[in-house]
Each structure stands twice: as C-alpha cells, then as structure tokens.
Simulated scan of single mutants.
Amino acid sequence: MNNDLEQIAERLESRQTLQALMPKKAWDADLDGRIAKLPPSARPAHIALKAGLHLLNESLAASHSYSQEIEDDPTGCYWHGIMHRMEGDFSNANYWFHIAGSHPAMQKLQDRAADWVRNSTILNDVPDGAVRDGLAAIARQTRWNPSAFTSLVSLQESGKISEETRSALEYVQHLELTELFSHTRHAARDWME
C-alpha cells in the first residue's frame, strides 16, 4: 500500500503545471483510477487523503464523494470547500470553509502566501484592481482567510478582470493545496506504512 500511495503522491507532486482555478477534467485519468483503487478505510484521515489526492488530480467529483463521507472532520471540510470553489460554487465553498474553522494548515499557508507576496515581484506584475488589492491584503493579514481568497477566484472567473492575474491566484491556490495535503498526509501516515 505504501508503495502505491507514494507513487501517486510523487506523480502529483512532480506536475509541471499548477491546478486550474476551475478545472474541467481530471489531470491524469489513469492516476485517478489508481487513487480509487487504494484500499478502503473508515478513518477520516485516510478518507481525507483520498479526497485530497483526487483534488490534486483535478478530479472534482471523486474528491467530493470522499469529502462528503467526513463532513464532521475539519480536514474533510477544508477539502470539501476547495472542491466547491474549484467547481465554481463559491457560496457552498465558503460554507465548508466556515465549518472547517481555523484549520491547522492555515497558519503555514498564511505564512507562505504572505512571504511569497512580500518577497516576489508579483504585485509589480498584477494590474491595479481588486485582485492586486486582495494579494496585498494577504501579505498584511495574520490569519488565512479562505473566503477572501474565494472572492478573488470568483472575481477572476467572472471574466471582468484581466487574465494576467490568473497565474498569481493559481500559485496561491497551489500553496493552499500543498499545505493542506502536507497536513493530511501527516495525519494519515499510519496508512502509508
């Protein structure tokens, strides 16, 4: 089991492209099948790991089916919220972020995202407007605000702003997925042995 899971994680982590803000299909259909074949488990940490693996592979429906199994688990709720954001159901995403509460992965995410905004040239490359202001707010805030980020993604997907901002938002989403996956993987480490 450990070998299969490690190979899946390595494949996802070696992607050369970032996950789309609103993906249309699974990134790697074969990989999606391999994730589905991982042994079943009733432990929330294991189910959350499957939800996360599917979401990293941009397989929204499969991720959703697993996160729905653990709606009383903060990690499952966080994956659930991201999945709804990625499908464009922004109010439902915010509901699940609220249920997830102040998730432990959020502090590392906030630190990494703020550091990236402060120390990269990204703000110089993003046109003036709400997305630039939102990215600047990430650098100033002390706690990660998934609903504020969802608002930025919603604005991007509305088509009312420049496509130049998309890559910045995709990178912040990448940081979010990376931190939540790291947390989830650590919580499910017994399943990986």
Rank of each mutant, 00 (worst) to 15 (best):
3 N>A: 12
6 E>L: 12
9 A>Y: 06
14 S>W: 00
15 R>T: 08
17 T>N: 14
20 A>H: 12
20 A>K: 11
23 P>K: 05
23 P>Q: 08
24 K>I: 10
27 W>F: 12
32 D>P: 04
34 R>V: 08
35 I>V: 14
38 L>D: 02
38 L>A: 05
42 A>L: 07
44 P>H: 12
45 A>K: 05
48 A>V: 02
49 L>W: 10
51 A>I: 06
51 A>V: 06
52 G>L: 01
52 G>K: 01
52 G>S: 06
55 L>W: 04
57 N>M: 03
57 N>P: 01
58 E>C: 10
59 S>A: 15
59 S>H: 14
60 L>G: 08
68 Q>A: 11
70 I>V: 15
70 I>N: 05
73 D>V: 00
76 G>W: 00
81 G>E: 08
83 M>D: 07
83 M>I: 00
83 M>C: 07
84 H>K: 04
86 M>F: 07
86 M>D: 06
89 D>G: 09
90 F>R: 03
94 N>T: 11
98 H>G: 15
102 S>R: 14
104 P>C: 09
108 K>N: 14
112 R>K: 12
112 R>M: 08
113 A>V: 08
114 A>H: 00
116 W>H: 10
117 V>Q: 03
118 R>I: 07
119 N>R: 12
121 T>L: 12
123 L>A: 03
124 N>E: 15
127 P>C: 09
128 D>W: 06
128 D>F: 05
129 G>F: 10
130 A>Y: 01
130 A>W: 09
133 D>M: 08
142 T>N: 15
142 T>H: 14
144 W>L: 08
146 P>L: 01
147 S>P: 05
148 A>P: 02
149 F>R: 10
151 S>N: 15
152 L>A: 07
157 E>R: 11
157 E>P: 01
162 S>Y: 02
164 E>R: 14
164 E>K: 15
165 T>P: 06
165 T>A: 14
165 T>Q: 08
166 R>P: 03
167 S>D: 13
171 Y>W: 03
172 V>D: 00
172 V>C: 04
174 H>F: 11
181 F>T: 03
181 F>W: 10
182 S>T: 11
186 H>A: 13
186 H>R: 11
192 M>P: 00
